[in-house]
């Protein structure tokens, strides 16, 4: 490889033990993330798609150090960051930021917008008091909130979109290199969602950012990302350029996801792959199915799928998939 990827995740496993009873006996583990590897180049936009409980958010939290990995490693600019102590981790916070899904609880309800954003500068002791205030106003302008109207508002007085803009301003004020967006728009209305997504695209260019975009909404991810990873029950099942994923989805789960997008025009309907509907729902990560974890819902599942986990198959330079079906093609 010629270039060191900005963020490199290798064989990441995150297991949570389950304790039960008075003696806190360990009765099992939740395999939230199991053997996930992918990397993001500088300036890239990696989209991570999957349903509820597929482990997307756990990956995000592990990257940011909120959750500690069970095994595997995460490298940032080639340096291992997955087992740092608190102090070194704190230094990294200005390089990596996260934007949460839940707009209503990600902002402290008892602080004004100005304080909410300024706090990042206070923590890292950047600039004088006046400079900090100026910087806050500048950031608010970047996210298209006029500072004179918003600086002294409480989050309760803001709409969902405005709250998310404040969250973006706060994340970007430290000039991070990587921003993890955990479902940044799923709590918002479509008309606002479009605004926020376009703003994020604009800011990415202006601040030269690298995004990890996590969402359950494939139509959003297809539009935002250059590379997409599809997750199912803690595992990546398919990774590819967004064009590849849309035009030539290989994994039956990816196909089902795409075909389930509720589209509105005839033109879009024609693109959708025609697939038989999936059975049932996503299983539990406590005792995940053996072999390919998707086999319990897969319309094409064979006996072999339940026994052995399929290996990665390279389709083209960027596109890889993990399914026995492909090997027969």
């Amino acid at each position: 490889m010629s270039e060191v990827p900005l963020l490199d995740i290798r064989n990441l496993k995150v297991y949570f033990p389950i304790y039960q009873g008075l003696l806190k006996k360990e009765v099992g583990t939740v395999r939230a993330v199991d053997n996930v590897s992918f990397n993001i180049k500088k300036g890239g936009l990696f989209g991570l798609v999957g349903e509820t409980a597929s482990g997307k958010t756990t990956i995000a939290k592990t990257i940011l150090g909120v959750v500690h990995p069970t095994s595997g490693e995460i490298r940032f600019k080639g340096e291992k960051i997955s087992h740092l102590n608190d102090e070194s981790r704190r230094k990294l916070t200005s390089k990596m930021q996260m934007i949460h899904q839940d707009t209503s609880s990600s902002l402290n309800p008892r602080k004004k917008v100005g304080e909410l954003i300024k706090v990042a500068l206070d923590i890292h002791r950047i600039g004088t008091a006046v400079e900090r205030l100026d910087e806050v106003s500048r950031m608010l302008q970047y996210v298209q909130l006029p500072p004179e109207n918003f600086l002294s508002k409480y989050p309760a007085a803001l709409s969902g979109g405005q709250k998310q803009r404040v969250a973006i301003a706060r994340a970007l004020i430290l000039k991070p290199e990587v921003v993890v967006l955990d479902e940044p728009t799923s709590a918002l209305d479509v008309s606002v969602q479009a605004k926020i997504l376009n703003l994020l695209t604009k800011l990415k260019k202006e601040f030269n950012l690298t995004y990890l975009f996590i969402s359950h909404d494939l139509s959003v991810v297809l539009n935002m990302s250059d590379t997409i990873g599809v997750m199912y029950l803690g595992e990546l099942v398919e990774v590819g350029g967004s064009e590849d994923i849309l035009v030539n989805p290989m994994h039956p789960y990816t196909r089902a996801l795409i075909s389930a997008i509720p589209v509105i025009s005839e033109k879009e309907r024609n693109i959708l792959p025609k697939v038989p509907p999936l059975r049932g729902e996503i299983g539990s990560a406590i005792n995940p199915p053996t072999g390919c974890r998707f086999h319990t819902r897969c319309p094409y599942a064979k006996e072999k799928c339940a026994r052995e986990r399929p290996n990665w198959v390279q389709i083209n330079e960027k596109h890889t998939v993990r399914c026995y079906l492909v090997q027969r093609f």
Binding site: L64, H100, S106, A120, I123, H124, R170
Partner: peptide
């Protein structure tokens, strides 16, 4: 979440 965000900001 806002407590987690504060930690993510390095507080």
């Amino acid at each position: 979440t806002f407590v987690e965000s504060s930690r993510l900001l390095g507080a």
